Amino acid sequence: MKISSKQVTDKWTEFTLVNDKQMSVSLLNYGGIITEIMVPDRDGNRENVVLGFKNITDYQANPAFFGALIGPVAGRIEKASFQLDGKTYPLEKNDGENHLHSGSNGFHQVLWDAVPFQTNEAVGVKLRHQTDPKNGFPGHVDVTVTYCLTNDNQLTLDYHATTDQTTPIALTNHSYFNLNGSAKQEVTNHYVTFNSNAFLELDEKLIPTGKTIEVDNSTFDFRTGRFLKDGTTTASLQHQVANDGYDHYFLFDGNGHVQITEETSGRTLDVRTTQPGMVMYTSNTLEGGMELAEGQSGSYMGVCFETQGSPASLHHNHISSILLKPDKIYQEKTVFSFGIQA
């Protein structure tokens, strides 16, 4: 196993983690952005299975949040404000009248303090950042996110945060996966399985209404598995408001475990998380024409598994809270395991 680094701009460093099976993960200290994940297919061909820019400097703006760490609060906050202990906190309106992925001061545009490490079992990078209230959220928050690659082709993201004032925290990673490799085709052929009995209903602005919808007898039922194309070709209201696909928060029933397979390449992805749910986004609104490492961007070219708590809880009390108090520690983990279909 080994880890290498290279300076890609005056301030940005790209780290590359390589295990003994020649799987590799590359990431930036800027935004904690995963730029590339190279894994073999069933014939041993190593290809990139995440979307990323061809030109590294395009991550400066990164409107699609390719590969980025999202926080302090991932997702949309209704009307770009929330109330806490009788005080209203206004936020940047960067998604119409709403607030998305913590705005221009979000973690995706932070230069993180980065420390690479290597043990007998793994290689990784530990990223750290300390916030202040200028981002609109209360308190000073100390955040550490650790990326770790093992010889079992497991990429682990460990999230840790503390605060000096009660504040919302919902961290995630926004990688767009495409197990076809080198973005050769859309992800509609990916077969996905996870245990969720319900998801949060969205309005026409993609804001959760607070209502949960049971998945029974619908294209939102992944309990026994289904192809992603089922949600891109079905004319139901919830798919229509999400621009013909999935962009919904699913509540996990029990442990968070997502299985993804792609038949042509034979690649598999197994996602396990301590988080209570995830937003699954099939890049329905991904802007076309951006120059990616593997070609041009476009709808359905990647799928995000944004394991996280839901910011809808800031407006709907019956949804699990994302508030972190000063006497508590935010500690969550998501593990991405890559393999080959038997």
Rank of each mutant, 00 (worst) to 15 (best):
G32L: 03
N48C: 01
G181D: 12
L323Q: 02
H248T: 05
F305K: 04
M290R: 14
R46C: 08
R272Q: 15
V25M: 01
E78H: 04
S4N: 13
R267I: 09
K211D: 10
Q238P: 00
K79N: 14
R128T: 15
N98R: 06
N45V: 13
R226F: 03
T212L: 00
N173P: 03
K328E: 15
V303C: 14
F336R: 01
D327I: 11
L100C: 08
P133W: 07
L269R: 08
M23E: 10
D142C: 10
D221N: 15
L286I: 05
S182H: 14
S175V: 05
V143Y: 11
A61P: 00
D41S: 07
L69W: 10
V279E: 01
Q154H: 01
K211R: 12
T144D: 13
T166R: 13
T13W: 02
Q154F: 00
S218W: 03
G96F: 06
E97A: 09
N135E: 13
H160V: 03
C148S: 15
S297H: 08
Q240N: 08
D270T: 15
F222E: 07
S283V: 05
L111H: 13
V241T: 08
N135H: 10
H318Y: 05
H318E: 14
L171E: 04
P276E: 04
H248Y: 06
N48H: 00
T282M: 08
I322V: 15
Y176P: 11
I329C: 07
S313Y: 03
L200Q: 12
N243M: 06
D203H: 06
Y191I: 06
N29Y: 11
N151R: 04
L237A: 12
Y159H: 14
V215S: 06
E306N: 06
D85T: 04
Q238G: 00
T307I: 05
H99V: 04
M23V: 09
L100P: 08
T162P: 10
G266P: 07
D216M: 05
D270A: 11
I207P: 07
M290E: 13
M301Y: 07
T234K: 05
E262K: 05
F338Q: 01
L323R: 01
P63N: 10
